[in-house]
Design a protein around this nucleic acid. Sequence first.
DNA 1: CTCGTACTACGAGGGTTATCGTACGACCAG
DNA 2: CTGGTCGTACGATAACCCTCGTAGTACGAG
Lengths: 124, 124
Amino acid sequence: MPVQRAKKQPSPSGRSLEHPDRADIRLEGVLHALSDPMRLQIVRDLAAGEGELNCSVFDLPVSKSTTTHHFRVLRENGVVRQIYRGTAKMNALRREDLEALFPGLLDSVLTAASLQASRPGGES
Amino acid sequence: MPVQRAKKQPSPSGRSLEHPDRADIRLEGVLHALSDPMRLQIVRDLAAGEGELNCSVFDLPVSKSTTTHHFRVLRENGVVRQIYRGTAKMNALRREDLEALFPGLLDSVLTAASLQASRPGGES
DNA sequence: CTCGTACTACGAGGGTTATCGTACGACCAG
DNA sequence: CTGGTCGTACGATAACCCTCGTAGTACGAG
């Protein structure tokens, strides 16, 4: 899908991030976003920490560019919301929107991920 | 993920299909399998029809090769079980396995798909 | 045996994704 | 203003995925 790469606004005052409206969030997109181990891990960490989390708290085994890329995928598919706070970028799950659109989905995915992680060979 | 393409057994008596053991089913794989609109539709139809369904009941807007491909993805990720019955191949959801591994997941995905389909622009 | 049906295997195309390195822009502290 | 930290943009590469057409195998009916 032509993900319509926002035209890099000059953003006069502060940087702005593109987020889809609640009504534009698609189930396939959410599932695809969660189907990558890296991104699933991010979402799990995000769900564990109550509030917002800084990008760099995550100790991912990939480069910074790649991390940015994954956060972008999560954002463009409506899974997380990102906002700038000074030099840091805070990330938060869009729990309410997801719950309204797909009730129970996020919880069952998180539960499933936990179960799988505690399975023999689950972390592989 | 290196999907480990079964070595094309000569299958002496009857054709055999490779299915992952319950313990080998991975959440990421299931989510990936469901993140394609075509496959999600297949799973929805499968869930609607109580029992097994023949491959050709599905009226998909793609060629037969492509259909085979999608069923293969679903099978290799542990979402469906396929067996030959004469010249036809019957398909069934692996409800029990999925429920045991990821309780509630399949149901919430199916519910979410229904909700989205009845949304304005849901079928697009 | 021969034919038709059902589905698979293979190979190829075109598009998307994951990953990286390097260079740049935004912000805070001196 | 200078420097350091944080994150982005861009370009490149390799891998992957969806799609297809063609050719082939397995099975049942005649």
